[in-house]
């Protein structure tokens, strides 16, 4: 790992100021992606501003159908939250599938979405749940937040502080994990939101990162069943292709995962 300088922020404003004063600093939360990347010398931030201990970014609050999750909530906290489980058990299932128990003790929801790894799990849920992502500057709808591979609408000194969404009437996440890394080869989060409208978020497979599948959404909005998406097309040209699986393979996986998710949501 290259040299770096570490500072711990105690509130959101200080964190933004600390970052602004650095040459090429980065925020660190759980660090479960950033530290391995730095160990491989694929990232070399001059400074690390630790936001994991900021109280205002902690905690989970569920009020009726409103769910609010602090950006520093760990995957283990989301997976084991009784309140989230009542509102949206699919999100607990998803959080419990990330990495392994040790990674889940450190990794955070804010860190995951700010990094926007194309194979990360949370982005699929964020777009399928139409989540609102609150930052140190504004609130951004999930559809506008994830822009490309490892790219988001966040500015350099902007920090994700919380995530809110309305509990769906039903939802489920189905993931085909890479057997070695546990990252999604394809992961599909399906949700039935207001007025029976369906939203389908796909991660792990798209060559531009997470995306919504409009044709499946239209089909499921009319008829929530596996049969409804049987004839939907997944465009191979928009799929990732790498040593783990080619585009045709991933396109098929997306469909299979979508069917499994629809069946699991009931």
């Amino acid at each position: 790992m290259y040299e770096t300088k570490y500072q711990r922020a105690s509130n959101v404003e200080d964190a933004a100021k600390m970052l602004a004063a650095t040459d090429d600093g980065k925020f660190i939360s759980g660090g479960q992606t950033l530290i391995p990347t730095m160990k491989q010398r694929l990232a070399a931030p001059s400074d690390l501003i630790d936001v994991r201990n900021i109280d205002a970014m902690k905690g989970i609050a569920v009020d009726g159908s409103n769910v609010s999750i602090g950006a520093a909530a760990t995957h283990a906290e989301v997976a084991n939250s009784n309140d989230v489980h009542k509102a949206c058990p699919a999100l607990c299932d998803l959080a419990g599938m990330i990495g392994d128990p040790h990674v889940r003790h450190m990794g955070t929801i804010g860190g995951s979405i700010a990094n926007n790894d194309p194979a990360a799990d949370y982005p699929a849920a964020m777009i399928a749940l139409n989540a609102q992502i609150t930052t140190s500057k504004r609130t951004i709808g999930a559809d506008d937040f994830f822009t490309d591979l490892f790219e988001t609408a966040l500015e350099e000194d902007e920090i994700v502080t919380s995530i809110t969404f309305q509990a769906p009437s039903k939802a489920a996440y189905a993931k085909f994990p890479n057997p070695a890394s546990r990252y999604a080869m394809a992961g599909v989060f399906v949700a039935q939101v207001e007025d029976g409208a369906a939203r389908v978020g796909v991660t792990g497979a798209g060559s531009s990162g997470v995306f919504r599948h409009g044709e499946m959404e239209a089909a499921l909005s009319k008829d929530w069943s596996e049969a409804a998406i049987k004839n939907c097309k997944v465009d191979e040209a928009a799929m990732l292709s790498d040593l783990h699986g080619n585009a045709a393979y991933r396109a098929n996986l997306v469909k299979v995962m979508a069917k499994r998710a629809v069946a699991a949501a009931g």
């Binding site: 690390l48 990674v103 003790h105 450190m106």
Partner: peptide, 8 residues
């Protein structure tokens, strides 16, 4: 439990 190789 955490991985001490993935924490500073």
């Amino acid at each position: 439990a955490v991985k001490s190789c993935t924490m500073l």
